[in-house]
Design a protein around this nucleic acid. Sequence first.
DNA 1: CACTTTTGTGACTTAAAAGTCACTTATGTC
DNA 2: GACATAAGTGACTTTTAAGTCACAAAAGTG
Lengths: 214, 214
Amino acid sequence: MSRWASALPDREEVLEAKRKAIIREAAKVFNRRGSHGATLDDVAERLGVSKAALYRYVQSKQDLLYACHEEAMEIARESVDRGEREGRTGLEKIQIGMSTYLREMIGAMGVPVLILEENSLTGDQARHIMGLRDEFEKRMRRLVEEGIGDGSILPLNPKLAMFMLLGAVHWVTKWYSPDGAWSADEVADALIEMATRGLAAQPGDRLMATIHNS
Amino acid sequence: MSRWASALPDREEVLEAKRKAIIREAAKVFNRRGSHGATLDDVAERLGVSKAALYRYVQSKQDLLYACHEEAMEIARESVDRGEREGRTGLEKIQIGMSTYLREMIGAMGVPVLILEENSLTGDQARHIMGLRDEFEKRMRRLVEEGIGDGSILPLNPKLAMFMLLGAVHWVTKWYSPDGAWSADEVADALIEMATRGLAAQPGDRLMATIHNS
DNA sequence: CACTTTTGTGACTTAAAAGTCACTTATGTC
DNA sequence: GACATAAGTGACTTTTAAGTCACAAAAGTG
């Protein structure tokens, strides 16, 4: 047994933490430059190490890209979980789920969603990620249907509504900067309020989020 | 003077038509694979010619990418023009402008919008395209302000509203397929109706577009 | 047809980034 | 301190796609 018992992070943990850091940084670069435009030299430089060092933590660029996608889908899944747990109507579940998702993506430690370029993943990896994405989208669609059923959402096409919301949300990663005037929380609240109002059966006659009133 | 007077397309026209075809095809590939992931061999193959042939019509891949962006911004500009001309309130102008824009992008001959990857354009070209984009966004924002002023739109943050709408619209290029069940027109109408309802001061109590009622 | 101009090609060179490896530096253990 | 193991590096090879070029095929013109 090493000194300090298990009070100090052991090797495994440090290793895993470094791998996570690589994934986070890579996700940002992939997202800004596209998966083919991003270079591992670039990721390495942002982390202050050499490219060769990265290869101790990831097998290949493909592997890294795959890990980023997995992370993003994990965030998506947890966000819907939370929406389903905490919301009372279909609409509320969507609002909570989507704003959680958005906050996680653009927040300090977030892995921004990755634009799915055709071709960036292949074979089993592509199939797995697409499977997760389809599942996520199916759950979102069901929440829309639930909302229509319970009267919180207007009769409309669930698939189209889901795509509209996802577009509004994913696009944020293209323009949002943490250095700007708005916090991730403010953006998430205000954007989701506005976007979901389009579906609401009883839309309020004013918007409550802080960004709208400043 | 050649025979048939000017009834036959002359060389210049044919040349220009071929260049347009290259731009359209390239735009699709850039959009699906990202600007770095797209290869000119691929574009050439889709057009049934060799890569070397492309270089008779474009100077470089950069030049081609730039032309695609210019084309997309031209479409954007014309769409706002039409909205401003035909709409009566700020909200109506936005609805007309945005649905025109979306139809043009995903329609048969459309040049899908290009995700602006950082780094894909550089120097003067990047500055020019960003200038056009900023101008487009500024006009959209002004229409939101106009709508707030004339009472057709709720008091809200114009910049955020614009980003929400643009996200919903641009995202369509990621999932829409002309081979699917929905026509470009149907999608444009239904999506814009839903998305702009979120901003409307007097949102209707049901959605009219065909997709929602089928 | 004979000649010129335009359009297009396959085989090449070049550039950039992925991926590897023999080696150095750091860390932890007795 | 001495040894063992892990972490990290610079210089290399390999791969892929951009871009070029000498030549071939096609089209226009007298």
